[in-house]
């Protein structure tokens, strides 16, 4: 349990650092570390496959692409557009409203009884695969079609327009 609290503290700490750091590249790097702590959480829950996949896809691919774009744009504190005081005030008010709603909803909801994992081996790859391909086959396939659609859309947008060229 102490391990959990320590790792949870780390994830919250790095998540906050992601938001408050001025340099966008630092921001992305803190986000990478945050994802790394998520992987540790998965391992603590005995979900090795999820941990490794989170590691490969989020840290190894998606964040690399984020970093890639930021490095090419070369944004820094000087190039940050200055927003008017009015916009900033709006942001503060909206954020406060969101916090109030969150607090209120937590107060209304009863805390659920602690979740008991029926099968502690559920996170291992064999069991996960069986669950995905037997019980949740339809949602699984539909989400894969969704991803494919997104990919086709991206390729289409990225293609050169033949009429103009």
């Amino acid at each position: 349990m102490t391990v959990f609290y320590f790792v949870a503290f780390l994830s919250l700490f790095f998540a906050v650092m992601t938001i408050i750091s001025k340099n966008p590249v630092h921001s992305v790097l803190y986000l990478v570390v945050t994802f790394f702590t998520f992987s540790i959480h998965y391992i603590l829950l005995n979900a090795q496959f999820l941990a490794v996949v989170n590691f490969i896809i989020y840290m190894g691919a998606i964040m690399v692409l984020f970093l890639f774009v930021l490095m090419l744009l070369n944004m820094n504190e000087d190039s940050e557009p200055l927003k008017s005081i009015f916009v900033k005030a709006m942001g503060v008010i909206a954020g406060m409203c969101f916090i109030i709603i969150l607090a209120a909803s937590f107060k209304v909801l009863q805390t659920s009884p602690p979740l008991e994992i029926i099968n502690p081996e559920i996170g291992l790859v064999g069991n996960l695969g069986k669950v995905l391909f037997k019980e949740f086959l339809l949602p699984f396939e539909i989400s894969s079609i969704l991803l494919l659609t997104a990919m086709v859309g991206a390729v289409l947008l990225g293609k050169k327009d033949k009429k103009k060229a």
Binding site: L29, Q48, F49, F55, A61, M71, L124
Partner: peptide, 25 residues
Amino acid sequence: DVNVGILYIFGVVALGVYGIMLGGW
């Protein structure tokens, strides 16, 4: 003997590119 050993190596390889990217930037 990690249960997902082969994926672990993939993860490490994927992480390796950060060293090059950070150094270059």
